[in-house]
């Protein structure tokens, strides 16, 4: 029980520290590396919530594929000069932080209310899922109950590929 709490605070710290690093680091390259750390921390959080399949997908898809995409684009473009220019709005950082903290206060208000967990209980307690196997349950649901969204997702990814190729193609003539 104690070890679980220590693990939670460790990965939560890695996640939040990484996310903060994305926002404060001056170079986009360091932002990407911090974001990879944040995503790995999130995978740890998913593990502590016994969502093993999603944790694996988080590492493979997010920390792997998507971040490589970001890394390629940053190395393709010549960045870093823009950030040294003076801010057009000098108070932007102050107001941005205040606005973000207002968002946080609003969410915190909801979290601290008593009616946070009133939904109907599902039929998949963690013990039953670990008995059946997390990946098996996800796969079974994906191809039965969630078949239509799953196929729509395939269409979406197809359209995304075509859109990216068409947009980034060099115009000839």
């Amino acid at each position: 029980m104690m070890g679980g709490a220590i693990f939670f605070y460790l990965v939560a710290g890695v996640t939040l520290g990484g996310a903060l690093g994305v926002v404060v680091s001056p170079s986009p390259l360091y932002s990407i590396l911090s974001l990879i750390a944040a995503f790995l921390g999130l995978a740890g959080l998913y593990l502590s919530l016994s969502a093993e399949f999603i944790a694996a997908v988080q590492v493979i898809v997010y920390a792997g594929a998507i971040m490589v995409l970001f890394l390629f684009v940053v190395m393709l473009l010549d960045l870093g000069r823009d950030e040294r220019k003076p801010l057009r709005l000098p108070v932007q950082k102050l107001f941005g932080t205040i606005a973000a903290l207002a968002v946080f206060a609003t969410i915190l208000k909801v979290i601290e209310s008593d009616s946070i967990l009133t939904g109907a209980r599902g039929i998949y307690p963690a013990e039953r899922v670990s008995e059946l196997g997390n990946t098996q349950v996800v796969g079974r649901l994906l191809f039965t109950e969630y078949l239509l969204p799953f196929q729509a997702m395939g269409v979406l990814l197809f359209v995304g590929i075509i859109g990216a190729v068409v947009l980034a193609r060099r115009r000839t003539g």
């Binding site: 997908v57 995409l69 967990l117 599902g122 039929i123 998949y124 996800v138 979406l156 995304g160 990216a164």
Partner: peptide, 27 residues
Amino acid sequence: FLDSMDGQLIVFFVMAVAAAEAAVGLA
């Protein structure tokens, strides 16, 4: 905490949307 798998399934779909969004956005 609600003994449901729906959260994990929806996260799976959100990840797919995020991947498509990253590809098009970076283009």
